[in-house]
């Protein structure tokens, strides 16, 4: 909805409520953890009063990657594993957009794992949410890289053979990583707070959300749900601060300064209790788009001038008028066979 503001220069001030970010009826199974993430995401958009047309949700393939369809914003439900490079292209072309990436444990940690590692290194200003339900859901119960060892699935009927990949230790091992957090779908308050901190962080914020698959692994997280002690909240001044109500339930808390990478790596290795909170945050890592985009005005005249200057380098003028600068052949600087001096 749009209200006229007092200041004549600021013609409209837009206010949005939750409904402004909702689109369609989610087709996820009832009890699926994706619903919790969707709700938190819509709240986040509302609370930051994001303009829907300036917000983009980019996803790959999998149950989680359906999320953009349920957001009223620009969305791009791309192909399996490639949400990150698509989002990087969007951000590079349009730094004015708020770009979110929605991915799953198969999408991000298996088929798209090369992009995952390099996205961390590029550190573009993206909010990346890994919906980690430890199983392939859309293709009906195959083991994923984060499936616990021994998990019986359609591709591992006698149990998964390998230890699970830990997305937190992987991300924290990559140069240029700037924000790593972990949430669980069954604590909406911290899920929201973590997404909020991730969105506020300038750089690539990577949030792993441990998420229940009600269809194929309905009981996997029961012990953690039943026993709050099996969740360790990471708190810190300026980072995560649980409400009194939440703190009363989740008493297992650890004061962790997200600036401390070594400690973050130790915490990331913990499997039980599950650490929930911000593991690492470094606002000083440069963003790739800031390194690459020039602040030069780009218009027909600048392109013409740049092009003419390049033409000059390679032009043979009639009547002996000659160019002063440049070299003989363009694109031959790579000539490995003729680099003599």
């Amino acid at each position: 909805m749009t209200l006229e503001a007092d200041c004549p220069l600021k013609m409209y001030e837009e206010h949005h409520d939750l409904a402004d970010y909702q689109s369609g009826v989610p087709r996820w199974c009832s009890g699926c953890g994706d619903n919790a993430i969707l709700t938190a995401m819509q709240r986040l958009c509302r609370d930051h009063n994001l303009r829907p047309e300036k917000t983009a949700f980019i996803s790959g393939i999998g149950c989680s990657s359906r999320l953009p369809h349920y957001m009223r914003a620009y969305g791009f439900h791309s192909i399996h594993g490639r949400a990150l490079p698509v989002a990087e292209g969007v951000k590079m072309a349009r730094p004015d957009l708020d770009v979110f990436v929605v991915t799953g444990d198969g999408d991000c940690c298996s088929i798209g794992s090369a992009h995952w590692i390099h996205a961390l290194r590029y550190n573009m200003n993206l909010t990346v949410v890994l919906h980690d339900n430890h199983v392939y859901g859309l293709t009906k119960k195959q083991a994923s890289p984060t499936s616990p060892r021994g998990l019986k699935s359609n591709t591992t009927p006698r149990g998964a053979y390998l230890e699970a990949l830990n997305p937190l230790t992987v991300t924290l091992g990559v140069q240029n990583v700037s924000f790593v957090a972990q949430a669980v779908d069954w604590i909406p308050e911290t899920l929201y707070d973590i997404l909020d901190a991730a969105f506020r962080h300038r750089g690539l914020s990577f949030v792993r959300v441990i998420q229940r698959c009600s269809e194929f692994l309905p009981k996997l997280f029961d012990p953690w749900l039943r026993d709050p002690q099996k969740v360790q909240l990471l708190t810190h001044e300026g980072a995560l601060k649980p409400s009194a109500g939440l703190a009363a339930v989740y008493k297992n808390q650890l004061d962790h300064d997200p600036a401390d990478m070594n400690r973050a790596r130790e915490i990331a290795s913990l499997e039980d209790p599950i650490p929930v909170g911000i593991l690492y945050r470094n606002p000083d890592v440069p963003c790739y788009e800031d390194l690459r985009l020039s602040d030069k005005v780009r218009n027909a005249e600048t392109i013409r001038a740049g092009l003419e200057a390049e033409f000059d380098r390679f032009t043979v003028w009639p009547g002996g008028k000659r160019t002063q600068r440049g070299r003989a052949q363009g694109g031959n600087a790579d000539d490995a066979n003729g680099s003599d001096g």
């Binding site: 490079p85 990087e88 292209g89 969007v90 992009h115 600048t302």
Partner: peptide
């Protein structure tokens, strides 16, 4: 020099999808 960006991606697939992302966002790549 003319405000363009050349991105050396991590692989061929990323190069193509990066270009697709940029095109989707309004700038044919």
């Amino acid at each position: 020099r003319v405000g363009g960006v050349i991105h050396q991606a991590e692989d061929e697939i990323a190069a193509c999808t990066f270009a697709i992302g940029a095109s989707y966002a309004g700038k044919c790549a």
